[in-house]
Design a binder for these strands. Structure first.
Length: 603
RNA sequence: GCGCCUGUAGCUCAGCGGAUUAGAGCAUCUGACUACGGAUCAGAGGGUCGGGAGUUCGAAUCUCUCCAGGCGCGCCA
């Protein structure tokens, strides 16, 4: 209903100016914007929209807010275009103007949606001066080579994927970058250990199977901590790798390839696609970055390291913490890599991505780091005009005890185990249900439903919460069949699919829609809110807003389904209701698709 | 010590400067299956929005301050 919002907003603005012709200049003098402050109605009984602007103007105009509202409404009543869309506005409370859309107007909107596979969501405009589609980079997931993906990667992966999907749907060119940790000093010990354990792997072309990478990593770490000779060899190995020695590079590549395979298994299960571009990609640029920052006079040598002290942040800390761009041993660190990445991503092709917006989906613990790095990029003038650079932080994953999520023995929980358990629990729920309902289903059906429900539950539970706060992980809650959970949403889709199977769906284009119950009008209004929710998520990067919307839509639908017959209704109500069912299913499927969640026809 | 984030019902959380009565879900209690899948629906109880001050016609929302918790804080990423 964004189009209607804009139209009505303009009508009110116009009415305001006509009612108070001198108000524009006076408002300007007083530094007040002439915004009618049109927003969604806070409660259904107040209509569809409410304009809150009259109160703000009271002082300026030296009139009662209700009187101002009255004058605006008088003007609105003379506007034919407005009258065509809305019922007569009502003035309420201190001076709110409540606006309710006419039924014909709503029906017209529904009609448009039925013929629109974007469900009213506009595609991003390419402004006339610009040649290209705006590019957004979503940097997410980012596991480390030779380590297994664990709960710590869950939120970034799920939230980042959903944001990427939403931006893609809006028509942006989206680059989903997996900034994996494929470089650093730990490779010294890993390569040294690999050369010892599997020297033959370095001579043949085939990738080796290291089995459990976590075990491999732990073995290497253990030797590093206890064996001086091994430590010495590891340090030499880092130098060799950085120097590009063939055998070391080969070993590094083998380790990366091995890890990549493991990561891919998880991404396949989660239905996530990513372009791998690890930290090592930026190696060739690091020296140049430090040089450039040096030339700009931003860098200070402190205790042997090349540092940048920012007066905008960390001002009060004592001693003041710098951002280190080159270590005292000459090596570079993650700040350097991130700076190189920012520069590269904003640069135009072929030596960059030409990004207009960069989004980093990482835990909130890195907020200080990004604040510093972003500030440096700004000081160095690397951020193009109108481009955006954003950290999208999220909180910790906690167990039901409120502590950081761990296994009973205190180990980090592997992502694959977590997914296995979710699916296993969904499966046992399902088989119990099938048994109690005397249903016979194939193993393939059970497998598909359990997998879909399990993965959906994990994703939805995470996405449905405001990402900024910590997230309490609970299998019981996420798999609950009632409430704001994935199974509840999936069930709504299944119910509609049931209607479709029994009654068929719309054959041709539906004309002559007719509605009579309050449940239908509630459903219609819920359906029409989809587009503004998508725009909101695009701007705020909060997928939980979409989840809340989909849950509320499901609730409104289930109420309708429970209280209003569809297939047994007489025409034209029958086909009108079927149309609402279809639109509900389409909206739920599209919405859940944008969350990265698959839906089912039966469950 | 400094910085960032969080504090809303028994629990988990929404809440976008706006309304008498601050909303959901879970849990608890009471109802509804001869209408499309009851994995549903209808209803009830449950709150000094961490405390205090300020800005505003209006504050859970903005500002300040205090309290509590989490995370981070020079050469790991």
């Amino acid at each position: 209903m964004l189009n209607l919002y804009h139209t009505i907003n303009n009508h009110i603005k116009e009415a305001l100016e006509r009612a108070f012709p001198s108000v524009s200049s006076e408002a300007e003098k007083a530094g007040i914007s002439l915004d009618p402050q049109l927003v969604k109605a806070s409660k259904p009984e107040f209509g569809d929209f409410q304009a809150n602007g009259a109160m703000q103007l009271a002082k300026l105009l030296k009139q009662q807010p209700r009187a101002i509202a009255f004058s605006i409404v008088e003007q609105l009543k003379t506007n034919k275009n407005f009258i065509e869309l809305c019922k007569e506005p009502e003035i309420a409370g201190p001076g709110f103007i409540n606006i309710t859309l006419k039924n014909d107007c709503l029906i017209n909107e529904i009609q448009n949606r039925l013929n629109d596979n974007r469900l009213g969501v506009a595609k991003v405009e390419v402004k006339s001066g610009e040649r290209k589609t705006p590019t957004v980079i979503v940097d997410f997931s980012s596991p480390n080579i030779a380590k297994e993906m664990h709960v710590g990667h869950l939120r970034s992966t799920i939230i980042g994927d959903s944001l990427a999907r939403i931006l893609e749907f809006r028509g942006y060119k989206v680059l989903r970058l997996n900034h994996i940790g494929d470089w650093g000093t730990q490779f010294g010990m890993l390569i040294t250990h690999l050369k010892d354990v599997a020297p033959e792997a370095l001579k043949h072309a085939n990738a080796l199977d290291l089995g459990d990478l976590v075990v491999f990593y732990r073995e290497a770490k253990k030797r590093f901590d206890n064996d001086n000779a091994f430590q010495e060899a590891s340090r030499n190995e880092v130098v060799k790798l950085q120097g590009g020695e063939a055998l070391s590079v080969k070993a590094w590549q083998l380790l990366c390839a091995q890890s990549r395979q493991e990561f891919q298994k998880i991404y396949d299960r989660l239905d996530i696609r990513l372009k791998e571009r690890g930290e090592s990609f930026y190696n060739p640029y690091l020296e140049g970055v430090v040089e450039e920052l040096n030339n700009l006079g931003l860098v200070v040598k402190d205790q042997g390291a090349q540092c940048i002290f920012l007066d905008t942040i960390n001002r009060q800390s004592e001693p003041q913490a710098p951002v280190i761009v080159q270590k005292s041993d000459g090596g570079f660190n993650y700040a350097t890599t991130d700076l190189a990445a920012i520069q590269y991503r904003f640069n135009n092709p072929p030596h960059g991505d030409g990004a207009d917006r960069i989004i980093y989906v990482t835990d909130s613990g890195q907020a200080n780091h990004f604040e510093g790095v972003f500030q440096i990029a700004k000081n160095a003038n690397w951020i193009p005009e109108n481009a955006k650079l954003e950290h999208v932080p999220f909180g910790l994953v906690q167990g039901e005890d409120g502590k950081k999520l761990k296994t009973r023995s205190g180990q980090t929980i592997r992502l694959r185990d977590l997914l296995d358990e979710a699916i296993e629990r969904a499966k046992s729920d399902l088989t119990n249900r099938l048994q109690s309902e005397d249903r016979n289903e194939t193993d393939a059906f059970i497998e598909e439903v359990a997998t879909t429900v399990g993965i959906a539950a994990v994703k939805y539970a995470d996405l449905s919460q405001n990402r900024i706060s910590n997230y309490q992980f609970s299998f019981n809650r996420m798999l609950n069949l009632q409430g704001n959970t994935a199974p509840y949403l999936l069930y709504s889709v299944v119910r509609i699919a049931g209607i479709a199977r029994k009654g068929g769906f719309i054959e041709n284009e539906i004309t002559e829609l007719k509605f009579e119950t309050k449940q239908e009008w509630s459903l219609i209004r819920a359906l029409l809110k989809f587009d503004e929710i998508i725009i909101e998520v695009e701007n705020e990067l909060l997928p939980n807003r979409l989840c809340t919307y989909l849950f509320e839509l499901s609730q409104v639908f289930n109420r309708f389904y429970d209280q209003v017959p569809v297939l047994k209704a007489r025409e034209p109500f029958r086909k009108s209701r079927i149309a609402l069912c279809k639109l509900t299913a389409d909206t739920l499927k599209l919405g859940m698709g944008l969350l990265g969640i698959r839906t089912l026809e039966r469950m």
